[in-house]
């Protein structure tokens, strides 16, 4: 029904994923406000693109893909903005604090999020999708638009770094206390 353009059929279709999509966005952006915007935009884009949805695919993974792409775009934009701001600050043009920096400082970061901070962008995407959202390797590769080999390489590296972060910052997790 929703594929034929009935807007009222969209809500029951996506309601089961409202939590997972927001959680995914939060773990990828590591910021509550950004996560909310990313998730909103992902749902809006999903609705607009429903006509192009391949029925042979998993709807959940399709939503994850849209959200992951949206989060990546947002992080890239934020990075560019930060770089522009820092360049301006170096030249003495701006004296105000960086727009993202303030928000990030205010954010009360959980241990999990601090551990995820240790990962590179691709490693974090792979680790979050495979280990926290529990997609398999092939699904993760499809969501991220990369090869299974790339997923395995990044996953291996991400798990190694997470293990080091646990040893360093969360010994209670390692010892099971």
């Amino acid at each position: 029904m929703v594929l034929s353009g009935r807007a009222e059929a969209f809500e029951p279709l996506v309601t089961p994923y409202r939590g997972p999509i927001l959680a995914l966005a939060y773990r990828l952006t590591r910021d509550r406000e950004d996560a909310r915007e990313v998730a909103q935009e992902a749902f809006l884009k999903a609705f607009r693109s429903l006509g192009r949805f391949d029925l042979s695919r998993s709807f959940r993974n399709w939503l994850f893909q849209i959200a992951a792409n949206e989060a990546r775009d947002r992080l890239r934009r934020a990075k560019r903005e930060r770089a522009a701001f820092e360049a301006a600050a170096r030249e003495g043009i701006a004296a105000a604090p960086a727009p993202e920096a303030g928000r990030e400082r205010r954010e009360t970061r959980s241990g999990i999020m601090r551990a995820l901070d240790a990962l590179g962008r691709r490693e974090r995407e792979v680790f979050v999708l495979r280990d926290l959202q529990e997609l398999d390797i092939r699904e993760t590769a499809r969501v991220l638009g990369c090869s299974s080999i790339s997923v395995r390489v990044n996953l291996s590296s991400a798990r190694r770094k997470i293990r080091e972060a646990i040893r360093r910052d969360f010994p209670h997790l390692e010892e099971g206390r």
Partner: peptide, 8 residues
């Protein structure tokens, strides 16, 4: 360790 991390 990974299992506890996931649970956390």
């Amino acid at each position: 360790a990974l299992s506890r991390f996931k649970a956390a």
